[in-house]
Nucleic acid binder design. Sequence first.
DNA 1: CTGAAAGCGCTTACAG
DNA 2: CTGAAAGCGCTTACAG
Lengths: 338, 338
Amino acid sequence: MPTLAEVAQKAGVSIATVSKVLSNTPYFTEETRRKVMSAVEELGYLPNLAARALSSGKTHLIGVIFPYVYEGIFTDPLVQYILEGVEAECNERGYNIVLSTPRLSPDGPEENYRRLLQSSYLDGIVALDNVPLSSVLSPSLRKNTPAVAIGYGDHPYFVRSDDLQGSTSLMEHVVSLGHRHIGILTVDESLHYSIQNRHLGLQTTAETAGLNYAQFPKFDRGDFSIASGMQGAAEVLNQENVTALVCINDRMALGAIQQVQKMGFRVPDDITVVGYDDILSAQLFSPALTTIDQRAPELGHQAAQMLFALLNNEIPDSVVIPTRLCIRESSAPPKSSR
Amino acid sequence: MPTLAEVAQKAGVSIATVSKVLSNTPYFTEETRRKVMSAVEELGYLPNLAARALSSGKTHLIGVIFPYVYEGIFTDPLVQYILEGVEAECNERGYNIVLSTPRLSPDGPEENYRRLLQSSYLDGIVALDNVPLSSVLSPSLRKNTPAVAIGYGDHPYFVRSDDLQGSTSLMEHVVSLGHRHIGILTVDESLHYSIQNRHLGLQTTAETAGLNYAQFPKFDRGDFSIASGMQGAAEVLNQENVTALVCINDRMALGAIQQVQKMGFRVPDDITVVGYDDILSAQLFSPALTTIDQRAPELGHQAAQMLFALLNNEIPDSVVIPTRLCIRESSAPPKSSR
DNA sequence: CTGAAAGCGCTTACAG
DNA sequence: CTGAAAGCGCTTACAG
């Protein structure tokens, strides 16, 4: 690989001058510029980013962090859409992405991740931070790397989906259809800050409608999976005269629908089932699932934009992004018979 | 951030010694080791990777490359599973991932990507390389970065799915059920090397069974999407006495099923529909889709293992990974009536 | 086993 | 407007 020195020699100027031409500082003649650029062209010179990083402190590398809190993290639609959004913004600005999915433990994220954060490799960080177990962003603070959190972690700059509003509109939809006996299929809320807010939205809305949320049959040993949705539906439907199942995510909802059908009921004629996330399968499934679209790509776009503002020494405002209720085929008024 | 020099001072040794202790070269006393390590501990020293990269030429960064050939690349299950596999191997060895999704044009990949490849940031590269338009790996050859291709690009080290065997077993399944009039829903094969091989497998198998593949009704203006599957099914079913639709991927197959049902036919009773990929929705859909599982996570695992062998100065063998036929509910013998 | 010194390829005051 | 020189924080022969 050609170096600055070789370019300088070929152009007949000093390496300092080459460096200045390439970094677009103002002071040089057009003549110099021409000589340098043609030498660059001829040699096919491209900068050594490691050297540039060492001397300037800038790498043009953005860390994108997703805590590896369950298997198959890359098949999580939330992760995919966030990545999509962040990547688009980075690409536009000529930045590259270092993708890190640190395993978490009570002692914090793994060693390799900490090394990365403090390596001076990263100009900035976008991190999904929704897991109470331990924040992936706290170690970064030691190094003052600009960072934007996606989620509920306690950080100065964040973007998050409005889980409260989303769960509120979901429950309002179910209640407005006339359902009074509603089963809740969910996961342990200690796993996830978003879940706490979704629960709050469901509860408040139900109680506002005069329903006793505390007495709703609940299954809270789910793990977001289809299988746990089936199990939850089986348990909840066996004990109560439930006419609707509100599920904390789409995969559990799809499992619930399958279980409901297996038990000989129809969706939505006998039982209404709704989910949360609007994954691809939600639209494809028959019946198509009523659910909440949290507009995840927007989370990634906004987070990246905030980070670049930070890198530009501006102070961005944190944002909360509203969700959208998608009414499809899996929800309907209750049959009086049940 | 503390530097080597500060650690050296605190430990009362030279920076060369600290460096040697940290990089596990053999020559130093246990006493020295202790002193150095406790200084490292106290100061919370972590190496500056940019400096290390500049002087040693090693970054512990692996480039993972997916050409951005269509919108929503991160929602492509193949991409997800490959990433999953590569990440697992890298994490195990303390490597981090630089994720790059260069836009391609006839002139080659975009500038920012070329800069990355030649930046000396990357110790090695794993690249999905299936698109004839232009290879993402050719520029890297100039810098001799070790690289493994996933796909059909012309590279010394590669891993690929056995598309020929997969499409062969898919067509064998359909033919063995008794179908003779088979519609093909596919995409322009110039888009993708895998597709060329799948077509070859379908054709050879059909002809071996004594069928005239050339006269099968075909729709080849698909784009992998659900919508194009619907369109294709509509066109093919309108003109012929077809009893089965073989689709080049699952999303088109799912679209085809919806279209078949909309036209008043049942799947599989009236029309058999099969796909390729085994995405999540293939299992969830009703009827569940008969399809080919190309075991994409394995592609990522193998590619990464080959790359690490290369970094270790070993010569890995390229591999072709066999697929698995998943027989579900969407395929059945033809009704004689149609 | 340990240390002084050169060098990796850039950027950036500073002087001219 | 241009260039000589120091310095970024490491690693690595080399000498001792």
